[in-house]
Design a protein around this nucleic acid. Structure first.
Length: 423
RNA sequence: GGAGAGAUGGCAGAGCGGUCGAUUGCGGCAGUCUUGAAAACUGUUGACUGUAAUAGGUCCGGGGGUUCGAAUCCCUCUCUCUCCGCCA
């Protein structure tokens, strides 16, 4: 949620940012400014009435103490008249506040100055790429065929137990899954991230804090009986660890990591995009989150990108890093880098990580703050990234490392997997 | 699921209709003392809104009510704790 102060100070900046984000409903900006002006006038009136009531009530007490009953009664009558008016003012004030709030939460975050203009994924900017493309001349099976060949996972079985998009991993497939999670977590912990094991369901307040609510409600599984939501990413519970907290400046940046399953309804997905592991309703992911001083949050973003990049490199996968254009960025992000790995048998790029700086868009909702050098409270910046999402990494590993003798496991994973290849 | 107790500032814990944004202790910060530290002593220490700066306003779990006036009384919701039951 954007801060209302920005609307008073720099409307042009907001309009420019919304344009880059390809956000159409820019009338909202003037609407919000108009509401804010009215709201403040009413606020002043409301405050003055309250002040009058407060001081009058105080003098009633003093008069009563002196035994001046008549004087007290006169003031009581006067206060009652004021209260009548105050009630009306307070009601319109509440209505305006609600209106302003509802308009504010509809506006996306503003993009960072380095975000390229553009509307579609084709306009994303390739920052750099790395890794070797494998030579699959000997055989070239997509991961779902390899999965069947080696008994690693079963999509049909998932259909029976739950439904489409809930694959069952087993045998060496389940083991590889576990190896990846442990490797990713340890890698993050070694880089100074504190490990968390959060709840996999959250309440509405938490989902609102990281901006899944109100607009992405349909993307989450909702446990209606208790009002909980299954988390679409560990970002939600982990960032909410610090909701309503004022963090000592010396503790910034706060670095957290967590493994969690992620649940996504993915309403509207179809076609070959959803084949195999490419898009599923439940998947595993290890997430990193940082809460940073605004002064250096963009350095930290770059650091997080390098951190994820080394992880992808350690797995030996061909990858590229994209800077998302305004139109392809998420609602709440100010700058996002996507990581894609090349899945050689499918011959396509798969997104495996998204690393973003949200600036104060989330922390303004969650009231995550710190005290700056002059002892003023300020919002921190929140950042997060996947390191990494498992299914597509697994798809890519299986496809790229296939040989007629089996599937090679990258050296970095072998201590966790316990073997050099799947056979 | 049944019975009872409770929710107050970073923490602990008073207050039970006006002088309460709130006693006190701990913690934090600053100072005195000390070569330095500890101890002791002194002072200071909530958030939000608002202003050029003041002033003013709001906040004692959430919502509503009674009253000239509510942290204090009433209603309601949520949560926590204790005991019993069930259970990984």
């Amino acid at each position: 949620m954007l801060s209302i102060h920005l609307f008073r100070q720099n409307k042009e900046l907001i309009l420019e940012g919304l344009k880059k984000k390809n956000f159409k409903d820019t009338d909202l900006v003037d609407q919000i400014i108009g509401i804010d002006e009215q709201r403040r006038l009413l606020q002043v009136e409301n405050d003055n009435l309250s002040a009058a009531v407060n001081s009058a009530s105080k003098s009633v007490g003093q008069l009563m103490a002196k035994g001046d009953k008549e004087g007290a009664e006169a003031i009581k009558a006067q206060v009652l008249a004021n209260k009548e008016r105050a009630k009306a003012v307070a009601q319109s004030l509440a209505e305006l506040e609600k209106e302003q709030y509802e308009a504010l939460v509809r506006l996306p975050n503003l993009p960072h100055s380095s975000v390229p203009y553009g509307k579609t994924p084709e306009e994303n900017e390739i920052v750099r790429s790395g890794g070797e493309m494998p030579d699959l001349s000997a055989q070239k099976m997509p991961h779902w065929e390899l999965a069947a060949k080696y008994g690693l996972m079963d999509f049909e079985l998932g259909n029976k137990i739950t439904g489409a998009g809930f694959p069952v991993f087993m045998g060496q497939g389940a083991r590889l899954q576990r190896a990846l999670i442990n490797y990713f977590l340890n890698y993050n912990i070694d880089a100074g991230y504190k490990e968390y094991c959060p709840p996999f369901m959250v309440n509405a307040e938490s989902a609102f804090g990281t901006t899944q609510l109100p607009d992405k409600e349909g993307q989450m599984y909702h446990v209606t009986e208790d009002g909980f939501f299954l988390i679409p990413t560990a970002e939600v519970p982990v960032t909410n660890v610090y909701r309503d907290v004022i963090i000592p400046e010396s503790e910034l940046p706060v670095k957290m990591t967590a493994y969690s399953p992620c649940f996504r309804r993915e309403a509207g997905s179809y076609g070959k995009d959803v084949r195999g592991l490419n898009r599923v309703h439940q998947f595993d992911k290890v997430e990193v989150v940082q809460l940073a001083n605004p002064a250096n949050s963009y350095e930290i973003l770059e650091e997080m990108v390098s951190h994820v990049e080394r992880l992808v490199q350690n797995l030996g996968l061909p990858y590229r890093i994209l800077r998302l254009c305004g139109g392809d960025m998420s609602f709440s992000s100010a700058l996002t880098y996507d990581f894609e790995v090349y899945s050689a048998a499918q011959e396509r790029w798969l997104e495996v990580s998204s690393v973003s700086n949200f600036e104060t868009f989330q922390t303004n909702r969650m009231k995550i703050r710190f005290k700056d050098g002059s002892n003023k409270t300020q919002m921190v910046h929140s950042l997060n990234g996947s390191s990494l999402a498992l299914p597509r990494i697994m798809a890519c590993l299986l496809e790229n490392n296939q040989t007629p003798e089996g599937i090679n496991i990258p050296a970095a994973l072998q201590p966790y997997f316990g073997k050099e290849k799947i056979s």
